[in-house]
Design a protein around this nucleic acid. Structure first.
Lengths: 249, 249
DNA sequence: CGGTTCATTGATTAACCTCAACGACCGTGG
DNA sequence: CCACGGTCGTTGAGGTTAATCAATGAACCG
């Protein structure tokens, strides 16, 4: 098992957009369900926070690259991150979308290197936790270990949903299911609009086909893109499409 | 957290094909890498084995059903088990193939019910471990907890490989990749031959298309099925197909 | 303004799905 | 023993979908 040297925060060696979270930051963190610091007394919590780092990424920025080694697990506080793999033919395939409340890079606990390439789709804010802290909590706090399992399980569920919902059926149905999936996962009235290329990489179809489907949905008003870059859609119509209906009817 | 009543083995209440493993059985178990009983002194190991059950299934027999509650995680000792989900349209989709060395039903640790339907594809022998034992070891043996994580991670890898390798590209390429995948996972010179329906459910294509591809491969000798129900194939030709080559050339 | 990226649209083609039929194999029961 | 029904793999014909190749706009930025 590798050990990771922990040093307190030093602004001089700090890369841009990086600082430790404050107690207020942690209070507003969407990761109440992971809760690394639960059952840790406050003075110790404060000390540990010094080892964490808040980081921000712009759309299209790379968070980490497959096969790279890493020493930090990241908790997403805001935004959308795609995790991609490459098919034997070399085409990009998105295998997971990570959102606020998700953890990425947990596979570092097993082999020390990343299994995907992670790229920000929107503006992203995340909190980096040293692997050493995660490992330590995992070994000594059974409650936390179970939460890590649950987080891991969320990855499996996601991948399997991609298989059953987003990789089967007609192009129409897949696009509809993706929009529904996004809205469900984000849990808001609208969901972030993503590019046609990324939709295609999620659905296993081509960019052109995706564009045709989206364009037609927009033409007859079943879907529209707001000025803030979010989708709004007619839920009933989309659900019908998702079931396999071929046209408006 | 639910508690599970543990009773020693009683042959009178035992269902067919069920008995506890002997020390010899455990010594020959392909699950050295999970090793629930590692670091447990022998007398205690002997006692715990009384709570385990060896079980056997015939091809097409159901091991468990999605949404059912369960109290046992199973370690596969022999054979092939498919884990299936159903797409919104109601068609079956295989999301994982479990083989000797794999654990199935780990999701019981999180919610107490199964997330897939598990069906034997070949003759299967597995070892059922009470969830209570797994939970206990997970909470108190950090080394074991890490092994559970690794096992979980294998599920993610599998699902993602299905996404990138088995759900993209032409029907030819998918079939070739499936055969290669089976052989790699089984790690033998030949791999178990499975039915066209199951291949189709794995690949997201129709049974007819699958049959056409397999039949052509068999016609020109790139693939053959042995009397023991196993595939043997021309590795070079199949690898070329897997990369996207459309015909023999 | 030219360059870049992204979304859209068209025309054509190739791949796959659908529906349908047939033969091989196997176990059962007359 | 053979007829019967079942399952499974295979093959065919025809229709539909989506991939492919190619071109055009729209938005943005230096």
């Amino acid at each position: 098992m590798r050990t990771v040297a922990l040093r307190p925060h030093d602004p001089m060696t700090d890369r841009c957009h990086s600082k430790p979270p404050t107690a207020r930051d942690c209070a507003s963190c969407p990761h109440h369900h992971v809760d690394v610091l639960a059952a840790t007394p406050e003075p110790e919590r404060e000390r540990l926070r010094g080892f964490f780092r808040l980081r921000e990424y712009l759309p299209r920025e790379t968070v980490y690259v497959q096969r790279d080694t890493g020493a930090h697990v990241a908790l997403i506080r805001e935004g959308l991150v795609k995790l991609v793999l490459y098919s034997p033919a070399g085409t990009e395939r998105i295998v997971r979308l990570a959102m606020p409340g998700d953890a990425i890079g947990l596979e570092l606990m097993l082999g020390g290197h990343f299994h995907h390439t992670a790229v920000a789709l929107t503006e992203v804010q995340l909190c980096q936790m040293p692997l050493a802290v995660v490992d330590e909590r995992f070994a000594h706090a059974p409650g936390f270990a179970k939460k890590v399992l649950a987080e891991w399980h969320a990855s499996v569920d996601d991948a399997e949903r991609f298989l059953t919902d987003l990789s089967t059926g007609s192009a129409n149905a897949r696009v509809a299911r993706l929009l529904i999936y996004l809205q469900e996962r984000v849990g808001a009235a609208s969901c972030p609009a993503i590019g046609r290329d990324d939709m295609a990489a999620l659905l296993g179809i081509t960019t052109e086909t995706t564009s045709r489907v989206v364009a037609e949905l927009k033409r007859d008003g079943r879907l529209r893109e707001t000025a803030q870059g979010r989708w709004e859609y007619d839920a009933k119509a989309l659900r019908s499409l998702a079931e396999g209906a071929s046209s408006p009817h």
